[in-house]
Design a protein around this nucleic acid. Structure first.
Lengths: 123, 123
DNA sequence: CATCTACTTTGACTGAGATCGAATCAATCG
DNA sequence: CGATTGATTCGATCTCAGTCAAAGTAGATG
């Protein structure tokens, strides 16, 4: 029950934001809820992490594989994954010793729609 | 001539980034060039500014109109507009005393494409 | 249960960025 | 040309974010 409310801090509450920003001005509320998601994408490491996860066949990637792809310490990678997770762009699942991350495509799609200009997206 | 090179600092050099990040992993170089654009969108004020500009009929908006829409000082709005301009999301044009901003839809479209998941965008 | 590996959390440091007031620049008008 | 209005730049402040080392947690394994 309260589980839903917790999500308000994260990615949820974006349901009314699925509108291209070129079609009508964002409200202050919408902008404040959307901005953190784009901010999360505003770091090169997180962009690559998300791309590595989202483009991986099987849809999930182990943290160990992600860490190897960067010249950064494990805590730093873990930090970036947490940012992506808190905002709802990825989810994680523990399997044995390993933790697997998966991309939340619906969240990505929403962020893409907001930036779209190709009138086809105008509901 | 050198005008083209200047753009490298800004939005240009993104030509090879017009690929959904779900289709294949971004390279470190691509991520480093894309991230600043999303970071620019990672502020509620800038998101609203861009939306106000991009959704305005006539395609251009005077700074004075933009400033009125926020409880912020003119220097702050000017700062945010500069960020959007430097990254290539908007352009500005002086007409008499007033300065008009216009959205650069191609830049928006690229950022939307990178986040798209609807396979239709997969070149 | 002790230990090893995988991952996360904590704390500290450092640099970046949002904001404002004051000063500056640009164009218009008396 | 002095003054006024619109917009940007500058300098300062204050908060936030990326990074790492060290410590902590969670399973697996002997």
């Amino acid at each position: 029950m309260s589980k839903q409310r917790v999500a308000i801090t994260g990615a949820a509450a974006l349901d009314d934001c699925r509108v291209p920003l070129v079609s009508e001005p964002l409200t202050a509320s919408q902008a404040e809820r959307l901005a953190p998601s784009y901010k999360a994408l505003g770091d090169p490491v997180r962009l690559r992490l998300l791309s590595l996860i989202a483009s991986h066949e099987g849809g999930q990637v182990c943290v160990c594989d992600l860490t190897e792809a960067f010249d950064l310490t494990a805590p730093t990678i873990s930090h970036h994954l947490k940012v992506l997770k808190d905002i709802g762009l990825v989810t994680s699942e523990r399997r044995g010793t390993w933790v697997y991350y998966r991309a939340e495509r619906a969240a990505l799609d929403l962020l893409s729609t907001v930036l779209s200009v190709s009138e086809a997206a105008v509901a």
